[in-house]
Each structure stands twice: as C-alpha cells, then as structure tokens.
Nucleic acid binder design. Structure first.
Length: 472
RNA sequence: GCCAGAGUAGCUCAGUGGCAGAGCAGGGGACUCAUAAGCCCUUGGUCGGGGGUUCAAAUCCCUCCUCUGGCACCA
C-alpha cells in the first residue's frame, strides 16, 4: 500500500495574530495537498500552532491574562483564518495538547537516558527587563549594555543541553548525500554553509523561575522545555510517534515540510534533523524541507497607510478566498520573495478567473443550452483532448517540482486554448445553418471528458465561477 | 565583512552558449455564443554598470552597484 502523502507547515507562534505570510504558507501546503488528493493519493496535511514559550508568556502578561488563555485566544484567530481561506487540513497541532506534551516528555526521557542531554552551568549577562541573556552583540562600544535593556546582571544558571555537535559530521554527510532534502537548491547551499559553522550544543531548558509557560522536563521539575525543542516535535507527535506507532510507521517521513526561509537554519535544517537522528531515525526517514520566501509589503500603498500590515482575513472579505489563493499561488515563485500588490490581485482575478475561465464556462454552458437544449452527443474523439492532456501533464510535472505557479500557468494556457477553439469553430454560425448540425454536435462536445479535464485541485468552486470582475 | 538569492518590456516574471520571450497593462482590428468578456494584430527592452572568454553571451569568467535573507562584526 502506497505511503500517504504527508505534508506539514510550520506551526504558527501564538504571540500575535496571523498575517499574509502565515496565509501564504498554509495555502501553499494546502494546494500541494489538494494536488496529490486530486491524483488519487491519500494525503495527510498537518498544520497547527505553537503555544508555549517566553514571548507568549510576555504577551499574555501585557494583556493581563494567563498564558493559556492568551494562546487559546490567538489560536482561535488562526483557526478562523484557515476556515475563511478554505485550508483543507487533515490534522491540527496544538502544542498544549496531551498527545503532544506526552510525546515531548517521552522523547526527552529517551534522549536523556541515551546521554544525549546533559546538565551544565553557564554564566552570562542577563537583562531582567527583557528576561533574556545578552550576548556580545548586545554590548555597546564602551563595553556597557544599552539602557534599553534595563538592569543587567551577571547570572550563573544551570541548564540542560542537547548534544548537537556530536551529530555535526553525520549532518554534513547526510546533506552531501541528499541534495534533494532541501528545496530550492540554493537553500541547500545556505544550510550546508550554516552547518559548517555549528559550534555549540543547544540549550533546551529554561528554569521555571524565569519561564513557567512550557512543558516540564520529565527528569527535572525545576525546568521547562525550550520552545523550539518543544515545537519541532509536533511534526511527529501528531503523526502518532508515541501515541499511534502503526499510524506513524505509515506516515513518516514527511514528503514535504513547508517552512519559511527564516527558520531553515538553524531550527529545521540543524536542530530538527539532528533531533531525529538522535532518536535513531535513519537517513531514509529524514523529511524533505521545502523553503519558501517572504511576502513583502514594501512600496505598497495599502501597507503604508495601514501601518505596514495586510490582514489576510480582510482580503478574503473583500475579494474572496479563491481570488487571494489564486493570486498568491500564481505569482509567487516557490522559494523566492514576492511583492504583495492588491492591484495585482485584482488584475489576476479579473483576467484569469473571471474573464478567462469564468467566461469560458459561461459561454460554453450558454451555447449548450441554447443550441442543443443542454443535451450533447459524445463525439468519437475531441480536438481538445490532446491539449488537455498536455496541460495536465505540465500541471503534474510542475507540482512534482513544487511549482504551483507553473502549474497554474499550464491551466491558464489551456483555458486560453479553449477560448481560441470556440472562436475558430464559431458554433453561433453553425447553429444558423441546419446543414452544419453534425459539425455543431462535434464542436459542442469537444470539451474533454472528466478524466482528461483540468485538475480539480486548482479549479475554483462553482459559486466563484459566476463572480464578475471586481475592482478595488 | 562572509555565504547565498534577486536585478530582463510600464507591472509580474520565464529564458543558463545560437535571431531577447509570456501574461497583464497600452494601441489597432474583425466578430457577436458569452460576465463591456473572448479572438486576431500590435507599440514597448543599453537583459543593473563596466571589463573579459567565444564565431556567438541575458546565459560562462572578473569587477562594481542596488535590494533581500542568513551568519559574523560593530554599535
């Protein structure tokens, strides 16, 4: 039995509400997942939220509520957005869920017992106001710390460390042997360079005196788990790593883990891969990382006047989920940054969806009804079958390369071809001449049968097909 | 400073040694099934600058500039 297509995205940090970048990433994952489903493959698409950590605790304190209340409130905003954006996820990850916290504890215990986690004392300068250790780069020219940090004290603290450096050689070897493990290729290079610079181990604990909002270390109740160590595990905890081993064996490794370029190195490319290795995952069970770019707002009118933010929920309300999804997928080149433009969104919706695809279906259905009362005879073969097959082929190849923009280009080219075919065959002329009835039958049913039609994944739903052009 | 990415038409981007391209926007035309949509034709480029290799460079090499990311450094 074929392994399900398992795809994940980064879980979103619940210290602030979602923005357009969060939306882009989930749409990308959703579209990849839908493509595989449309091809008949079983798919598991996992998204979720990261609810622990210092920033959540701080934001909650500012808002005057408990961390769990704050996290749940922001979580609700993410859930609402995914519903509005029609994100068809199969599983939902919340790092406060028992399935996750128990898995994290089990993993910590395992690594601790194997000697991959050790306790050490470390001293450094600590900002009481910011609640964080300062590094040399926070130090001023005269060697002092900026008043922005408030009171700075030298603090010596015991913590638990994960033996990252022990696995550095393995990681280098793995990456060299698996260039396909990080896409696009230039991100592989970036990660490869970053691994070379890896020196220290990873501190994976925080004393409760400093940070209470997290998963308690199973072997030392005085500490909670560092948020990245906690968060990364979601990819396997919600795949059933400790809770449903049979399920997990089918799912893992992830075919793609969709992440932003900011969290490739060191979080996913180093911490995560080494964590898996430390848990004895062999090379062939390492996930593939798909690294996307940012949605930039620089130079955009609405961002300047609106304080440099574009609220995806607002865009959905204004234009609909399909228009936003189509725009982002059609114009973002996977891995590259893109410039967000509301004008471009409107232009894409109008030209490709409303005028191209929408009008094609409208005129096709209109003529079928008008000339043949909606009853068409199936022809032996269709002149559109070959171009349709080619479009499907290009579409699939593009998705195999993780390039939805290229897949949509293929679909749009086929729509244009169909509109050209109608002009060329001019059914409205044939309809006026009874002698051309047979020809009209052939032309009318030229539309390819379902199995050869354009892939379902990218086809806007029917109620959207009737939408007219919009303007902003 | 180091390592990468980007720089091609007004806009968004393809194009990695062989006559500079697509879509949109702009201009013109024929048509009338259709959502003032669609179709055909068309204007528009020092391929960031400079140097080099080559019969031939957007493409390969060197160098510089601008923007972006990571790391380092400085504050």
């Amino acid at each position: 039995m074929e392994k399900p297509f398992y795809i994940t995205t980064a879980i979103d940090y619940t210290n602030a509400p979602p923005h357009i970048g969060h939306a882009y990433e989930k749409i990308l994952g959703d579209v990849m997942a839908r493509d595989r489903r449309a091809r008949g493959r079983e798919v598991v698409y996992l998204i979720g939220v990261d609810q622990h950590g210092q920033k959540v605790q701080q934001s909650a304190a500012r808002a005057g509520v408990r961390p769990e209340v704050f996290a749940q409130d922001v979580t609700a905003k993410f859930l609402d957005l995914w519903k509005r954006l029609d994100i068809a996820y199969d599983r939902w990850a919340e790092t406060t869920a028992p399935q996750h916290t128990e898995c994290v504890r089990a993993i910590l215990n395992q690594l601790h017992q194997k000697g991959k986690i050790y306790k050490a004392r470390h001293g450094g300068y600590y900002s009481v106001r910011q609640e964080q250790f300062l590094t040399e780069k926070d130090r001023g020219a005269d060697g002092s710390f900026s008043p922005d940090w408030g009171e700075v004290v030298f603090l010596e603290e015991e913590n638990y460390y994960f033996r990252l450096t022990e696995f550095k050689d393995w990681l280098v070897g793995f990456l060299e042997a698996h260039r396909e493990s990080v896409l696009p290729a230039f991100r592989w290079t970036e990660l490869r360079n970053a691994v070379e610079r890896l020196t220290g181990d990873l501190c994976i604990s925080r004393p409760k005196s400093r940070l209470a909002w997290g998963i308690e270390l199973p072997f030392d109740p005085e500490f909670v788990t560092y948020v990245w160590f906690d968060a990364l595990i979601n990819y396997i905890s919600f795949a059933g790593y400790t809770s449903h081993p049979v399920d997990f064996e089918r799912l893992w490794p992830a075919d793609y883990q969709v992440i932003g370029k900011d969290i490739l190195a060191p979080a996913h490319g180093i911490y995560w891969l080494i964590m898996l290795r430390a848990l004895d995952f062999p090379d062939e069970r390492m996930p593939r990382l798909l690294v996307h770019g940012y949605i930039n707002l620089r130079g955009d009118k609405i961002s300047k006047s609106a304080g440099n933010t574009v609220d995806p929920a607002e865009l959905v309300g204004k234009y609909g989920a399909e228009a936003l999804r189509y725009y982002l997928m059609r114009e973002a080149v996977t891995g590259q940054d893109m410039e967000f433009s509301e004008d471009r969104l409107v232009a894409r919706h109008n030209s490709d969806l409303a005028n191209g695809l929408g009008n094609l279906l409208n005129r096709t259905l209109g003529m079928a009804k008008r000339y043949r009362q909606g009853v068409l005879k199936k022809p032996a073969d269709s002149p559109l079958a070959a171009p349709a097959a080619e479009a499907v082929s290009r579409h699939r190849a593009a998705f195999d390369r993780c390039e939805p923009h290229a897949a949509l280009e293929a679909a749009a080219a086929f729509v244009a071809h169909c509109n050209g075919f109608i002009e060329e065959s001019a059914p409205w002329k044939l309809a006026k001449d009874p002698a051309q009835a047979e020809r009209l039958d052939a032309v009318s049913m030229a539309w390819p049968n379902r199995s050869a039609s354009s892939p379902r994944s990218m086809r806007p739903r029917s109620h959207r097909l009737r939408s007219r052009s919009v303007s902003n």
